[in-house]
Amino acid sequence: MNTVAGDGSGSPVPLREERDLATLLEEFPEIVLVLSASGAVRWGNHRAEEVFGVALADAVGTSVLDFVHHDDLELVHRSFESVQRKEVGNPIEVRVRVRGQWRLIELIGRPVGLVEDGAILFALRDLTQRRRFEVAHDDVARFRALVHNVDAIIVLATREGIVRSVSGSLTRRLGHDPEDLEGVSLGAIVADEDRALFDEAVAATATATDRAPVVRSLRLVDRAGGVAGTYELSLVNVGDDPVLEGLVVTAHDVSSREAAEQRLHDALDELHATLSLLHATLESTADGLIVVDRDRRVVSHNQRFVTMWQIAPSLVEAPYGDLLAAVLERVNDPDAFRALTEELYAHPSLESDDLVALRDGRTLRCLSRPQRVDDAIVGRVWSFSDVTAQ
């Protein structure tokens, strides 16, 4: 005799055959599924057919993973693996698509090797309505749902950094089974190269005042042991809280930010090298060169320009009017040279090629062209060469 069942009279009677057990399981009010190790349906009860709207004959062989929210797939995979080492697994909550809608489902499983190697018996319960009621009427439940779904990884640890609980984001991002991490140092998911920095950060929380966060950028590893990216960890000592009594650790993925910062650093290095080359080129030419922007500010020049015009070096840093006044003092026809500069600045796209006679007897060839960035005129380049002997 395996168990008992009622006969309607109130007196228990022996179950006659194993098929009676199957009948009870078939009529069980919760969803019952038997899955392969890879998540393929092997059997389901009548309640499963009702909820999912799929006949058992059509469901056998299909993967339940097709119905699981992509953010919860890692958690389900880890549950499939960890339950094989237990008599009964721990319950988990995941989002499952049921008749076109996402539902919050609690599932708990146990291995049933008598069906096939790796097979798992799962009992599923729809928590959606209950959670909605809790969230609507309970601030704690609302906050719990927020923590579970937030993108940042949140960890509650002891003062020594031993994991006590983690948010669902850790599994979604790094693939670790929360059960495998509980009771283990959080440093276990930190890359070996950054482990000392993590230990130093944990130690630093002991002396942090007013719950000041200890922030470090560390590389975290995924379940396979590979570096998953750089995360900014913020460790806050809440040891004075009688409930939490430990560390609250939040981790944000900053890999993209670091990559952008590196690209900016590389671009600045390249720009510095380009400017250095440009400066060397300007200084190596025999011509006097000066570049003036649209607002008549000097943005670049070479030493040859200062020497050729015999002006004080500080004038190229002075207002444009002061520089122009010094130049006009050195030409034979200051009015003509002033008119030339005003004409060119009034019409930025014009080019000029003129000879300028200086009071000291020298003659300079003056070339002026617009400076362009792509198709936009951003300034004007002046080039002066001494052609006195020609």
Rank of each mutant, 00 (worst) to 15 (best):
G113L: 08
A145P: 02
K86H: 13
T307P: 05
R211E: 08
V373F: 13
R294L: 15
L244V: 09
L218S: 04
D374S: 13
A212K: 11
I108R: 15
D269M: 13
I189M: 10
E258C: 11
D192L: 13
E351W: 12
I311E: 05
L170Q: 07
T171M: 05
S82K: 11
V190I: 15
E232T: 10
V327P: 05
F337L: 15
V291Y: 14
P334E: 01
I154H: 04
I189H: 10
D335H: 14
G288K: 06
D138T: 02
G6S: 11
A326F: 09
V155Y: 00
E317L: 09
I31C: 05
G109K: 02
R97C: 08
L324E: 12
H279I: 07
A152Y: 05
H252A: 14
R359P: 00
I377K: 08
G118S: 03
N90R: 11
L367W: 06
R103K: 15
R330P: 01
R144L: 11
D222T: 10
G44D: 00
L220G: 07
H69W: 09
F67W: 14
N2D: 15
H77R: 12
V190H: 10
G168Q: 12
T205H: 13
R195E: 03
L289E: 03
V88T: 01
E342I: 12
V249R: 05
V60Y: 10
R304S: 04
G53Q: 06
L146T: 03
R97Q: 12
P242E: 15
S63P: 03
T128Y: 02
T3P: 00
S169D: 02
A339H: 06
L220T: 10
V166I: 15
D333P: 06
R16W: 02
L107I: 01
L146F: 03
A339V: 07
V316A: 09
R369E: 03
L25K: 07
T3Q: 06
E329Y: 02
L355D: 07
T209V: 14
R172V: 01
A48H: 10
P178N: 04
S217I: 11
A201P: 08
R47N: 07
H301G: 08
R296F: 01
V166S: 14
L197K: 10
V32S: 08
V298D: 01
A326W: 09
G118E: 08
L344T: 13
S314T: 11
N332R: 12
V249M: 11
L35D: 06
S383L: 01
S383G: 00
F80P: 07
W43Y: 09
